[in-house]
Every structure is written in structure tokens, then in C-alpha cells.
Design a protein around this nucleic acid. Structure first.
Lengths: 340, 340
DNA sequence: AACACTTCCGAAAACGTTTTCGTGTTGAAA
DNA sequence: TTTCAACACGAAAACGTTTTCGGAAGTGTT
């Protein structure tokens, strides 16, 4: 078990100083062609690789970016991570991923842990609990220390930083408009409680679409799911006995549960009722019927977030350029859960 | 933008030496109660947190573990990561995740990058391409440097290290046995090409189950999918026109494509034909019909892998204990794609 | 012979910690 | 008054780099 080779060991072995070795390896002109060759040959032979930790300490840069997500077992986030990974790696950055599990405390803890030197900056989608609490001290602190922060998907308006979002309102509006276009007249909405920002915005899109078409919103047709874990039953109960010919659900699962509920009630999707979901995951693609959804282009969002962050990291400390907010387009993917 | 507080700054501010500050914060008895209080109060007030990088350099430990997976957009791997995260965080470790995208080169690159000080050890599921090439120099090198390595799921027999696997053969055998038990007599197998170790093992389980029941394996009923991206068509073509009353597929996707193919041919699952998949993902749960699958318990595998790794990390450098191989049980989850 | 210039290399500081080893001051015992 | 232990603290080394600065040879110019 040979330990890692260091400059010092090379120096001793070749009977020169550490500084000479360092310079030789970095092709400094200060070192004669002769010794330079000798040192490089030796280094290559024994496969010398500089120690990243030492470099980080010296340069005060770690070349890694921290990603904090609420949960990974969710197709959307995995696509975002893919996007981040890709551009990060292209530019020589590592990606370190932690999960908050939607817990405020874990978000704070993880952030503090990474902020102490492990990371140059953050990409973050805030935990549900954090949105609910409205306590953002950890975010402010990180920003205050000069660490760039990019928020995506679930962002916080009050915090000034770069952001990558989709236009939830417009995405939802288009989805509902599509339902209207195919002659749905009693369109239900299955959404989340209001403190989840995306739920709120998508609800707003739903309402706007109705209004623009001169249709009356009906409180009876709006379900705000309280508890994700029991959403299936909630949805089933909500849907039964109502006269509905279209459903807009703010995520994949709600949409699927809706379809299942209809099936059990003897209603055919899309013949009797059309369903549109949000987030274009595997589920939507493979389900029968395949689901018409609003696609969020997660990989694209991740890539943009990473680009934004790296830009901030590599811009001269000089002055924080203005903060940007990138809105990535959503697109409606028509499949078999809505009739043509 | 206040920069991070360091020991040196505290020392200057309070007019003591750096060592005194360090000792005070670590509750050394060498420091008088008086100054200790003063220093701690100051540190708390200004929210001092030690710099991880400096600690890493000093201790030659990073307290982070590197996870290398072939792809993240795959429910099984995300559950594994969850498991790893959880036990790692409990023990104060960070988790850094990189993807090989099933590419040999990326696997090597990422590994080298992390091996240079960023990580104390690795948890890895090897890339498809690596298995195909049979080039393991990067793994050997890492082990040689004294960095513990735990492989999971897709492991390499020739490499000596801790491993966490499922018994693919037995899992597959049980699945096929179940099909036999419910009176299937013409059971097809949809698997991968042989160099993917799990595909090979599951194929073996299929064959063993048949043999134990005195049934003849029929080459005609075995499909080895070459190209994942075009698996749907391959499967459709394979399945059409054959007399089949049961299918065992080595993953979720293949199983779903099989069901779809049957549907299109007017065959009912499970009435006319039963289907069993492998890997218990969201897809299997929510699909209609919901799929009977062999569950791999990904979170459990991740947790075990992390435990194994941390044990190696924290055991006295003294001697490498013997390598362990943990086999986590699979379980057959019966749902609606197989008749009762 | 005196001087200036290159060329090539090493010493040392710096990044932020922890830890070992002194060392000066006190108070008490002899 | 001397001696010694206990106490409280500081200096310095170490982890592995990079970089600035200074200096010893060697070369060339008057």
C-alpha cells in the first residue's frame, strides 16, 4: 500500500527543493530544460497527482459546487442533477449533492456544513418546510459570506440571487387552455396547499385561463391536497360524484391518481374526461394512457443553473454583477390522456 | 460582505495567540476558565465555524465519501443514494455523487479526480462499458492507495473489496418459480446481453427455475436486448406470434414494454399472460396493471454499503479486516400483473 | 579587474487548523 | 530565601501546495 506521492517526496528523491519540483511541473521558465525533463519524467512514472485539498486551501477555491435538493427520489430532480453535472464537469467542477428531505433543519445543517470550505457556491431548491416557515437566515448568511447562490424551481422571491425557474403560471395556463380547446367545460384543479410556491402559481394559471375564456371558477372543483402521503384517497373522494370533463393536476402523481379514480368509477380517459399533468417524468410517458403533461425540461434548468453559478464564481470578485432570473420555457406534450 | 472568521482573526481581536484560541474552543484544560469563556463567547457571537478544508489537510481525512453511479435517472439508484445519504449523514459524513453515464472514461476520470484528496473512500456501481472492457486499473490503483472501496449492484468478482449485492440468481429463480406456480408453462425471458453481470445472473436464475421443475428451456423464448434505446421495438417484435403465457423481465422497462406489446396484440395481462419484472420502482407500483416485481431494496443496499465503508474508514489503519460481501434479500412483490 | 546581466535554484511565507513542547509567572513548601 | 509544582499561555511545526524574493554561479562587457 503505497501512500500518495507528494512534492516533498519527489524533491527528496531527486535531490532538489520542493519549489523546484513545483515549478518544473508547471513548466516555469525558471527551471532549466534539463531538470525540468527529469522531474516530469519522474512524476509521470510514479503517477504524481497534486493534492486537491492542499490546492483548495491555498487557492481558497474548491472547484466544487453544492447542490441541495428536497428529495432525490423524484424524477424531476434527477434530471436537474444530470444537467448540473454535465456543465459542471465540462468546466472542471465537482458536484456534491445533499438532500434536505424537505426538512428545514436538515437544510440549514447541510448548508452550514458545506459552507465551511467544502464548496464554492450553491444550487438549491428550498425545502417545503422552509417555505412554510419563512426563515431564510441560512441563505442570507451564505450570500453574505460572498458565496454565490442559485435557486431553482422552488425559489424565494424575497431573496436576491440568481434564479432559474419555469413560468409556472403560463405553463399551467397553457395546459388549461388546451383542455378548454378540446371542449372541456367543467375543469377540476388538483393542487397543493398554498405555501408551496409552485402550487400557488399553477393555481393562478388555472384561474387565469378560465377567466380569459369567460368561464367561472368553481371552488367545488378545486382540491388543495394537504398530505402528500394520503393524496390518493383524498383525490378519489374529491373526484367521486362530481360532473367533471377535464382535470389539471399540478404534478404527475396527482394526475395518475385522478386517472385511476376515474377508471374505478367507470369513466374512460380520455373519452369521458381529459387529464393533464405537470412534470414530464417516466411515469407520464409509460402510463396507460400516456399522460399529456407540461414538461419542465429539468436538465435544461440544471444546466442553466450551473452556468449561472459558474459565471458568478469566475467573474472577478470585483463586483457582483446584477442578479439574473432565467425562465426556461415549458412545453405541453400531448399524449393520450386528452382527446384530440 | 464579511469574509469567514478565522482563528487568527479571533486571536488578534482578543489579543491572545492562535493556539490559545484553538485550545479554548476545544475545551482544553490548559486554558483558564476566564479566557476560555471570553473566547467562546466571542466565537459564538460572530458565529465562528472551523474551515473544513484546513481540517482535512491537517487530519488527512475529508469526512466525505464518493459515490459513483452509472446513471441517476433511474429509480433504483436514487433509492440507493437515499440509503447512503442517510447513514453517512448520521455519522457526520458528506456524500459526493458523480455519474459515469456508463462510460469507462468518465468513470476513470471522476475517480481520479476524487481520489486526489477529495474523498476518504468510494461506493461504486461500475459502468456498463467498464464491465465490457474488463479494464479495472483505476479501481486497483485506488485500493492500492489505501482508499476503501465498496461496490454494489454491479460488482466485479475479480476485484477484492467489500461488496453489497443481491442474489440475482435466487431473486430471478423465485420470480420464475412464481410464474410456474400459477400454471404458466411457456415462460419467456427478456434480459440483457451477457456482459452485464446482473443480466447474466438473472438469466441463470431463470434457467435454474425451469430445470428444477423439469421444464425445458427454449431458446426461442429468450430475448437478449442489445440496445436499450430501441428495446421497445425489439420486445414487440420478439413477443408477437409466440405462444407465451408468462414473461420474466430483468427490469421494469422491459416488463412494461412487454405488457404494452401484449395489450396491442389483444392479450390481457394477467388473464392471458402473466408478467414479472425486476426492481421495484414507482413505475411498477403505479402502472396499470401494477407490476409484480422482484424488489431490490435499494435504500437498504445503500445503507449497508455506507456502513461497510465507514467501518473500514474508522477501523484503525492497522490491518485491513477481511473483505465482506453482504447479500441483501430480495422479495417478490405480488401485484396485478400476475394472476393469483 | 570590475561590473552588470542572465540563468537556475532554494528559502520562506501563506492558506487555517491542531498539537507538542517550551517558558514565564505564581504560590506554596522547605 | 530558595526550590518546585502547577498553571496559563505562546512559538513553532505539520499537512501539501504555489509564489515571491533573494542569491550563487556563470557569462559577457568595458
Amino acid at each position: 500500500m503505497k501512500k500518495k506521492l507528494t512534492l516533498k517526496q519527489i524533491a527528496k528523491e531527486l535531490d532538489v527543493s520542493v519549489s523546484t519540483v513545483s515549478k518544473a511541473l508547471r513548466d516555469s521558465v525558471e527551471i532549466s530544460e534539463d531538470t525540468r525533463q527529469k522531474i516530469k519524467a519522474f512524476a509521470k512514472l510514479y503517477n504524481y497527482k497534486p493534492n486537491n485539498i492542499a490546492l483548495s486551501l491555498k487557492n481558497k477555491k474548491t472547484k466544487t459546487i453544492g447542490v441541495i435538493i428536497p428529495e432525490i427520489v423524484h424524477h424531476f430532480f434527477t434530471t436537474v442533477i444530470s444537467g448540473i453535472e454535465q456543465v459542471a464537469n465540462e468546466r472542471g467542477y465537482n458536484v456534491i449533492i445533499v438532500m434536505s428531505n424537505n426538512s428545514f433543519d436538515k437544510e440549514v445543517l447541510n448548508m452550514e456544513m458545506l459552507a465551511n470550505g467544502s464548496t464554492d457556491g450553491f444550487i438549491l431548491s428550498v425545502a417545503k418546510e422552509t417555505q412554510q416557515k419563512g426563515d431564510y437566515h441560512h441563505l442570507l448568511e451564505v450570500i453574505n459570506q460572498g458565496m454565490p447562490l442559485v435557486m431553482f424551481d422552488r425559489v424565494i422571491d424575497e431573496i436576491e440571487c440568481d434564479k432559474v425557474i419555469i413560468d409556472d403560471t403560463i405553463g399551467a395556463k397553457e395546459a388549461v387552455q388546451h383542455l378548454i380547446d378540446i371542449q372541456c367545460r367543467n375543469i377540476a384543479l388538483i393542487t397543493t396547499v398554498d405555501y408551496v410556491s409552485v402550487g400557488k402559481l399553477r393555481t393562478q394559471g388555472y384561474l387565469e385561463a378560465l377567466e380569459e375564456n369567460g368561464m367561472q371558477a368553481n371552488e367545488e372543483l378545486i382540491l388543495k391536497v394537504e398530505d402528500f402521503d394520503h393524496s390518493e384517497e383524498e383525490i378519489k373522494k374529491f373526484l367521486s360524484g362530481k360532473k367533471i370533463d377535464g382535470v389539471f393536476a399540478v404534478n404527475e402523481h396527482f394526475a395518475i391518481y385522478a386517472v385511476k379514480a376515474f377508471n374505478e368509477n367507470g369513466l374512460k380517459v380520455p373519452d369521458d374526461v381529459s387529464v393533464v399533468g405537470f412534470t414530464n417524468g417516466e411515469l407520464s410517458k409509460l402510463f396507460i394512457p400516456s399522460l399529456t403533461t407540461v414538461s419542465q425540461h429539468g436538465a435544461e434548468m440544471g444546466a442553466q443553473a450551473a452556468r449561472l453559478l459558474i459565471k458568478k464564481l469566475e467573474t472577478e470578485e470585483g463586483e457582483d454583477g446584477p442578479y439574473e432570473t432565467i425562465i426556461v420555457e415549458t412545453s405541453l406534450i400531448q399524449r393520450n390522456s386528452t382527446k384530440r
